[in-house]
Simulated assay, not measured.
Amino acid sequence: MKTVTVHSREGYQQEIMAGSHAFMSDLPISEGGNETAPEPYDLLLAALGACTSMTLRMYAERKGWDLEDIRVELSIHKSPGEKDVIHKKIEVTGDLTEDQIERLRYIATRCPVNLTLRRGVEMEEEIQLASTYQATTNIPRD
C-alpha cells in the first residue's frame, strides 16, 4: 500500500510527502493560489507521463530494442458534466521499426497509472479532529 501525506501551508500551497521525497503543490494565481508549485492536475499528468515513460523504457530494455529517448506530452480537457479527456502524445527516438513503435504504443496503455485511471477507483474518505498534530517538513517555507 502506498501512502502520501499532504499538509496545508500558506494559502492553497500544499506540502507533499511521498516516502522520503518532499515537494509542493499550489494553485495558479487566477484561482487564488500563489503559483509556487505545480497544481494538482499537473501532478496527475506528471504521474501518468512518468509511469508511461518508465514502462516504455523497461519494456524496450527487456526486448533489447534501441530506444534512445522518450518524450511524453500530456494535457487534460475538462468538460462540465462529461468525462474529462487526457491527451497523451509520445515521441520516441532510436533505431526502431514500425512494428516496434506500434508495440510501444500499446505498451504505453499498459502502464499501472494508465490502467488505474481507465478502470477508475473507489474512494474511501474519513475526517477527524486532530487532538495533537506536529508538522514536520523538509521543505523551507518562503
Score class of each variant (00 low, 15 high):
K2I: 12
K2Q: 12
V4R: 01
H7A: 11
H7Y: 09
G11M: 06
Q13E: 13
Q14H: 07
E15K: 02
I16A: 03
G19Q: 06
G19V: 12
A22L: 09
F23Y: 15
F23S: 11
F23T: 14
M24S: 10
S25G: 14
I29A: 14
E31V: 10
G32Y: 12
G33Y: 05
E35C: 05
E35N: 14
E35P: 01
A37S: 08
A37D: 06
P38F: 04
P38Y: 02
P40K: 00
D42Y: 08
L45N: 08
A47T: 05
G49W: 01
G49M: 00
G49T: 03
A50S: 15
C51W: 07
T52P: 03
M54R: 00
L56T: 01
R57G: 05
M58Y: 08
Y59E: 04
A60H: 01
A60K: 02
K63T: 10
W65F: 07
D66E: 10
D66G: 05
L67R: 03
V72C: 02
E73D: 14
E73M: 13
L74Q: 00
I76R: 10
I76Y: 03
P80H: 02
G81T: 05
E82M: 09
D84F: 08
I86Y: 01
I86G: 00
I86E: 00
H87C: 04
V92S: 04
T93G: 11
T93Y: 01
D95S: 09
E98Y: 08
Q100T: 10
E102K: 15
E102C: 13
L104R: 03
L104E: 07
L104P: 06
L104T: 05
R105T: 06
Y106A: 12
Y106R: 14
A108E: 02
T109G: 08
C111V: 05
L115M: 12
T116D: 06
L117P: 01
L117A: 03
L117D: 00
R118L: 09
R118P: 00
R119G: 05
V121Y: 07
E124R: 13
E126A: 13
E126I: 12
Q128P: 00
Q128S: 15
L129S: 11
S131P: 01
S131L: 07
T132A: 10
Y133K: 09
Q134T: 15
N138A: 13
R141M: 10
R141W: 04
D142S: 08
D142Q: 08
